[in-house]
Nucleic acid binder design. Sequence first.
DNA 1: AACGTAAATGAAAACGATTTTCATTTACGT
DNA 2: ACGTAAATGAAAATCGTTTTCATTTACGTT
Lengths: 143, 143
Amino acid sequence: MVNRKEIIDILKLRGYKLTRQRRAILDTITRSHSHLAPADVYEKVNKRYPGIGLVTIYRTLELLTRLGFICEAHSGNSCRSYMMRRSSGHHHHLLCSICYRVVDFTDCDLRQMEERLTRQTDFEIDSHLVEFVGRCHDCRRKN
Amino acid sequence: MVNRKEIIDILKLRGYKLTRQRRAILDTITRSHSHLAPADVYEKVNKRYPGIGLVTIYRTLELLTRLGFICEAHSGNSCRSYMMRRSSGHHHHLLCSICYRVVDFTDCDLRQMEERLTRQTDFEIDSHLVEFVGRCHDCRRKN
DNA sequence: AACGTAAATGAAAACGATTTTCATTTACGT
DNA sequence: ACGTAAATGAAAATCGTTTTCATTTACGTT
């Protein structure tokens, strides 16, 4: 996983300014282990660093996604929620539907499936989307 | 796959009225082999059956989803696009990113993956989302 | 075949999420 | 400390979706 320090270095390197707002958003997303919709990020950020606009949240999320530091989830929360990219390479997510916690996993057997599908359908497969949704240990115990 | 006739019978049976609009929308979705965002459905429907409102499209898509006749795609087109449910049981989609064609596949090895993840993370897994995105034979040839 | 009724529709308004615009502020190299 | 281009915030615009409500329609009953 890329840590906050490294991200800041890369931002500098690429000529992006290190603003109070970007620090705050990075800090918040790094700290959280959930997948967060833009509005969630806004709320969380403003608790610790008041006065940061929603527009800036959107712009920063867009930037961090473009640079590959965060990635999207499709199931659960909202159809467009973000979380830190913890594993740098090819990986997928396991989402808790109660606390929005995210667990990454990298070892997927989909290559075989992909090859089989390519053979059977003559598609040239470019990408795949895999997410598991469940309830984590802690949330199950609380219910 | 459930055909148009069967769907109409089930609608009647459950007390839903068979309106011009519902017929038109069913006809259009059944005919198409792509995944369609609500706006796409609206456009297609109105080519053949003019004068059907977008609101009705939304309501009918909601109904057909609730009854399980159509299902959603998350990748590609829009984060919320619909297509006929062709296989009735557990299945997944392979989407063409150019013509929006959809191919269903049922045999996935995810049970094993699910079990492994359950063991490793102590999540109780409720569902999974799997989609492959690629370019189909025809679209590749055209480029 | 006409009637009555509840359900379905359409138009407009409301709504929520996201994007654009533009004037002001800020980070950072000089 | 200064200058400049980039970043921000507030407001407006835009887009997709939902709600409201008056009108229309499908369909069971006479």
